[in-house]
């Protein structure tokens, strides 16, 4: 992160910096102490690939796999808040698919059973889901920039699901409409272990600036 420190002078710039690494492990990056404190993790956890970040409008969404306890309350709070029904499949934050066998050697029934954590939309700057949508139903919210699915336009074809490298949008089999994370924060608010947390941009920017001043 040292090369990028000079860029953290406004929260919008900070968010754009983080968008570039949204949804990927932070392994390989050296984070400043103030930033680590804000994110509630350690440099070792970062080095081991246990921590991922997502750039959301309201702040940096931090996923700390070491703290995830697999209760799926994130999925339940997401689906109840956004869809008015409880589900794992249509939840916009996803852990069911990683819980038992994640396809990469982790999960309760794997050789590495205690590694599981939720995953969600990266809010890509150049979203594959939006580009492939034949209805142009996926748009960026004017104020937040969050990618949303226009439920009126969506025909439930599933092209977005296939196009997304992480298959994050989901076509609800009951409504035949696609949905995806709208960065509402319900998953974070209800996470009982703090494995999911949001650090607001002002704080991230401030921490990054403090680190820069310390040099």
């Amino acid at each position: 992160m040292s090369e990028e420190k000079k860029g953290f002078d406004t929260k919008e710039v900070t968010r754009r910096q983080f968008l570039k690494i949204s949804g990927v492990s932070l392994a390989g990056l050296v984070l400043s102490t103030p930033l680590l404190t804000l994110m509630g993790c350690t440099q070792k956890q970062v080095d081991e690939g246990e921590v991922m970040v997502w750039a959301m409008p309201q702040g940096l969404l931090v996923v700390n796999a070491s703290r995830c306890v697999g209760c799926q309350r994130c999925e339940l709070n997401c689906s109840l808040s956004n869809d008015g029904a409880a589900s794992t499949f249509i939840s916009r934050v996803k852990i069911q698919r990683k819980l038992n066998l994640d396809g990469a050697g982790n999960g309760l029934l794997s050789e590495n059973p205690w590694l599981y954590f939720p995953d969600t939309c990266r809010q890509c700057e150049d979203p594959a889901c939006g580009k492939v949508c034949p209805q142009q139903a996926i748009y960026a919210d004017e104020t937040t920039g969050v990618r949303k699915v226009d439920q009126e336009k969506c025909i439930g074809c599933g092209a977005c699901v296939q196009a997304c490298p992480w298959h994050m949008p989901t076509v609800n089999p009951e409504t035949k409409k696609s949905s995806k994370c709208i960065a509402c924060g319900a998953c974070v608010a209800g996470c009982p272990s703090g494995a999911l947390s949001i650090v607001d941009w002002d704080a991230v920017t401030s921490a990054a600036q403090d680190a820069y001043k310390d040099l």
Partner: peptide, 26 residues
Amino acid sequence: VWGHTPDGEEIDAGEQPYNDINKIAY
């Protein structure tokens, strides 16, 4: 603590105030 995490960094259970939803799991 959760003292045997993969990265060797202990996670301290800390205090869990009864009204702090985000710490219940500890």
